[in-house]
Write a protein that binds this DNA or RNA. Structure first.
Lengths: 93, 93
DNA sequence: ATAAAGCGGTTTATAATATAAACCAAATTT
DNA sequence: AAATTTGGTTTATATTATAAACCGCTTTAT
């Protein structure tokens, strides 16, 4: 049985990646809304994805307000696809 | 975003369920081989699946040796299918 | 017959993970 | 200018996964 990448095998991290796979970039507030997570949890999980090299996190400003934008990296994209493949063998899809 | 049933969202428990979905029944030793898990871990995870009502665990004998057989329940089957559906929304399958 | 090794597990301790609660600085509203 | 909101981070706690230690029984070797 294939291993399931533990970085992706987490509900919130998977949800974030799932969004980022379809959307070019998304900011903290948007991800929080879509995933219905708490800010703290999201912050931690974004760090992990970032530390794994699966996403980049860019802090900037919109007017006077901070804005944290996230994008999936090529490495993240690949990892996501491999995760999907591994899962398929469990789910018989 | 749909919730992912935490009982199934665990590599080893998912692997076990995946096997049981295709096989009518499987015993402890077989599951241990197929999943390449340690006996302790498998024992704990079978208990959780059983406590959740997703599998039944039947202890018997083959000759003088004990044999622990597992089968997926109707409830387990349903939960597995719902889990697959929920996951699909994350993976865009 | 007895000690040692193996089989089929369970229980318990530990490490890792996920999650929420508490907190913080800057901006906005009252 | 005090209170509230926004956009987060840090830290503490609960949950989970995992492995290590153990247990009773059986088989094998001495």
């Amino acid at each position: 049985m294939k291993e399931l990448d533990p970085i992706l095998h987490s509900q919130l991290r998977l949800a974030v990646m799932s969004i980022l796979m379809n959307v070019d970039e998304a900011d903290f507030v948007y991800l929080k809304e879509q995933t219905e997570s708490t800010a703290g949890n999201l912050s931690v999980q974004l760090d992990k994805l970032s530390a794994a090299g699966y996403i980049t996190v860019t802090k900037g400003f919109v007017g006077k307000k901070t804005r944290t934008a996230c994008q999936v990296t090529e490495q993240g994209r690949k990892a996501f696809e491999e995760y999907v493949n591994a899962l398929k063998s469990y789910l018989n899809l």
